[in-house]
């Protein structure tokens, strides 16, 4: 029998009560504008920052953004906006 994890329980609760997953499961929100801009919400902090790679830590995931000339337009405790030429988004 498959072992039920805490994540499965959270997902089931979210599906049963129609609660948004970012609230129920603590997932982050990503809003992309082509490959030029990305807005990230619900994160914990930056792990690495260079003009080619930005690694952002969230509650459940670690996101790696790669690209060229990456600039953080603003950085607050709620959201951050990154602009530049995005090449890839990886969930670690």
């Amino acid at each position: 029998m498959k072992k039920i994890t805490a994540q499965d329980v959270e997902e089931r609760i979210s599906n049963t009560f129609s609660v948004p997953k970012d609230i129920a499961m603590g997932l982050c929100n990503l809003y992309l504008v082509g490959n030029r801009e990305i807005i990230i919400e619900n994160y914990l902090g930056i792990q690495t920052y260079s003009s080619e790679v930005i690694i952002v830590k969230t509650k459940k995931l670690v996101i790696e953004l790669t690209g060229e000339n990456l600039v953080i337009n603003y950085y607050t405790n709620k959201d951050m906006k990154i602009s530049g030429k995005l090449a890839g988004i990886k969930f670690l």
């Binding site: 914990l44 902090g45 930056i46 920052y49 600039v71 953080i72 603003y74 950085y75 951050m80």
Partner: peptide, 15 residues
């Protein structure tokens, strides 16, 4: 930067 965001300080144009 992470400390600053936790303290509610707005940082912009980080290069």
């Amino acid at each position: 930067f992470n400390h600053a965001s936790r303290e509610n300080l707005l940082l912009w144009n980080i290069k």
